[in-house]
Write a protein that binds this DNA or RNA. Sequence first.
DNA 1: TTTCAGTCAATAGG
DNA 2: CCTATTGACTGAAA
Length: 457
Amino acid sequence: MSSSESVKSLTELVQQPCPAIETSKEGKPPEPSDPPASDSQPTTPLPLSGHSALSIQELVAMSPELDTYGITKRVKEVLTDNNLGQRLFGETILGLTQGSVSDLLARPKPWHKLSLKGREPFVRMQLWLNDPNNVEKLMDMKRMEKKAYMKRRHSSVSDSQPCEPPSVGIDYSQGASPQPQHQLKKPRVVLAPEEKEALKRAYQQKPYPSPKTIEELATQLNLKTSTVINWFHNYRSRIRRELFIEEIQAGSQGQAGASDSPSARSGRIAPSSEGDSCDGVEAADVEEPGGTTVATKSQGGPAEVAAAPADQEEATQPAEKAKAQPLSSATPGQDNGEDVGQPRPPPEGLTDTPAPVPNLAAPAAGEDAATSATAATEVPGAARAGPAERSSALPSTSAPANAPARRPSSLQSLFGLPEAAGARDNPVRKKKAANLNSIIHRLEKAASREEPIEWEF
DNA sequence: TTTCAGTCAATAGG
DNA sequence: CCTATTGACTGAAA
């Protein structure tokens, strides 16, 4: 362990801040000659340009701290400037599929919130950006693909998909017309907007529904339980991610005015930095179709699902909800005009129902506010911290905002100064409200055990 | 077990 | 073609 020198050179490789400054040209040693004696890796699955002796993982491990936002921004620029698609880029440079690349470029998570694995793509991107021939290489790939494509077309005259079924052998579908072919492949569930709405509402009541609640939701919405579970998982993490980007952008916001960010470029002093900023605890209000600006009443009682401080599960089904098709019964117990369910087509395929759920449009009407009420009951003062302003009292480790604003003095980036001013208001509020709920949830959870937990909200 | 972080891959829009 | 969205899956923590 040691080898501080090699680290240094590697660091340069992955560094994003201005590369200039070096008296020696160096550029990039084809291979550093100093693999930090580490056990071998499962080998990179990617062709990865095929050089570099070091595995990315090693690079990632010693990578300095990259500005993910800045990196993605530059990558996007380069790609668009050269008409390179993210599919090509993803597959050849990152080893990821197009969708993943799109996601990554659009919503990079801040470096410190990334796992080792999650950092990998960013290191690769940085490496790629540093490569003087990056564009050229990709263009070559593009040409090659095209060539291959043309070739294929040419060779196969009027042949339709020569070798299509790559299946393992479980397939006897070769018939003739790929029409209503057997759907051996699951059709991919697509939730209807109404269903999503219902789920979101449920999420706001309870970001972490109990299995029982999930089961109920599934029944009421006529979805598979696993679908509901997955939905919650996905929704939670996607909400979380949006909060991250918000965090990032906040850091690079340069409000009109002269002062640019103080840029307190400091190191990571934190043993496990957790900068968080909760932002004012605003009451929540939710949007709704119609433009009814719901004021945030401190709820009246439509808390429903959650009742007992401890485990509210029991209050959930005093009645009987045998029948599916909850036209309006929704959650038993304290109904309050709440309705989680919505009429939907009969179970099991059968596309009959001509009318796609007529009502359900704006069922809610106000109870969303329950957002906070719900669980707050027990938690002492922990959760909400007064009004707003939370000038961190503790020496919160790590600066709340890193300053990715600066740009290297490269000719390229001279042109881009897209700076986007935020102009969002509504959706954000909602997200925050939901986020609060999850915070509460965690507090509750933690309340039952004693452990110095560190939270990041 | 459950949650989470990363991804994949189908698919909806352009 | 290309990109964005999103349900589902995988593997690793807890």
